[in-house]
């Protein structure tokens, strides 16, 4: 879909500090590489993610995702379930203004999954790269 082969999307990843954040640390220990233009923001639980955070991220980036604990295994029981609902809420908002809802995502992993972390991040990056630049970015 993208016309520009050199396009490098910018991705904002919100990471639960009990899983995604630690998995990123694990990936760093293993020196597993992933695209530079992926930046992370730490959350205490994926349930802290807010639709507004996603929206604000998408005002600047091409894609955004939240990394949550495995289903049924949230340290706070419902955090990843609520996170999933907020992802679909954001997806709906994007869709209604004509932006691909795939630009927001949720991925589940555990703290010791460094490889899975890079796989997720790389996969999401590639998907966003295919979608091309986010047309909704707000440049002030």
């Amino acid at each position: 879909m993208s016309t520009n082969q050199n396009f490098q999307p910018k991705i904002v990843v919100f990471a639960c500090e009990n899983s995604g954040w630690l998995a990123a640390e694990h990936a760093a220990e293993l020196c597993l590489s992933y695209p530079e233009k992926v930046e992370m923001i730490k959350l205490p639980c994926s349930g802290k993610i807010d639709v507004l955070f996603f929206m604000k991220a998408l005002e600047k980036a091409d894609g955004t995702a939240v990394l949550a604990c495995q289903k049924e295994n949230c340290k706070f029981l419902k955090g990843n379930v609520r996170a999933e609902q907020r992802v679909s809420q954001t997806g709906k908002i994007l869709k209604e203004i004509g932006i691909e809802e795939e630009r927001v995502g949720i991925f589940y992993l555990a703290a010791n999954m460094g490889h899975k972390f890079t796989e997720i991040v790389q996969g999401f990056y590639d998907k966003i790269r295919e979608l091309g630049p986010n047309p909704g970015k707000v440049i002030k």
Partner: peptide
Amino acid sequence: RKCGICAAECPGKAIQLPDYTDSQIL
């Protein structure tokens, strides 16, 4: 247990979780 779910749900943005306030994240 400091998960911050309440802070994310609050429709009035009245709730802030220390170390992870909305303004800090934004």
